[in-house]
Amino acid sequence: MMSRALSPTVVLPLLFVVVAVGLALYPLVGETFYVRLMAKIIVLGILAMSLDLLVGYTGLVSLGHAAFSGAAGYITATLILKAGVTDMALLLPASLAVSALLALVIGWISVRTSGIYFIMITLALGQMTYLFFHDVSYWGGTDGISVWDKPVLAVGGWTLLELSDRMVFYYTAWACLVAVYVGLWLLMRAPFGQIVRGVRINPGRTQALGHDVHRHQLAVFVIAGTIAGLAGFLEVARSGFMSPAHLGWHESAMVLIIVILGGMGTLVGPVIGALTLVLLEDWVADLTSHWKLIIGLFVIAVVLFLPNGLVSLLTRGAGPSWLRGRRATPAEAQAEGGDDG
């Protein structure tokens, strides 16, 4: 146990520094296979951080988040395959724009609702996006799209980044991870983040203090969707492959598990969650072909025994208090509010 002097506001950024430095140094010592696995973890970590922004910071439980990374991935893969575009200065903005636009549309419909409705609607609209890429033959059907060329960033004849090089990709993705973390950390400390925190804790009261709740929720939804788009772009640059399964709700649910496993509302937790789950999957898949059974039991165990995530073991209660125990029944909530004369 840590001493009480270490508050989460100090521990969490410190923890991220440790994780980031670890990831930066790993390729110097690790085997190729595990370096590849780490690259996958970094991309997944970016996706999970973006979902944490929604779930942990804004209280919006989205079960369709993979739609945004998937749509961006499809745009990247299709532009490479069908239009022969490899210029990163074109690919990246295009895929981010698509995921942002999609998030704007889905978010506009979804934030009008809350709670269980929000979960169901993001699930359904995410599934609609899945079916769009699955059913329309232009996108390659169930098999998806494979590309051999990788994005390249060149300025005036100077090649700056060639993502086909595994190490170049690794450190580009790493830089993205760090940039996303720092960006979101700053954003959540800014007035915008303070209002968003109010929206999560008590939306009604936050509105009664002069803030447009839906507009803030939508803004967060679009930001999260755009960052997910970055993860989708990186995924195609990493694996050269995009298929409908990347958008399916099982993928969305797994990202959600990653966020919870690591510790929601902490930003660094999702990265640790991605690390843990990918390594676990890799290990279990070696043991048995029925690894999904083990993962399923693991998920259940996390929900029952570690709902505040791994990070909470370090910070003792850094997680949001509303997850910690039972939900208060209305009767209790009323008792909390005092009698009303």
Partner: peptide
């Protein structure tokens, strides 16, 4: 508000 309506964790 009549019933206390604050943000308890802040």
């Amino acid at each position: 508000y009549q019933k206390t309506n604050i943000l308890p964790e802040l």
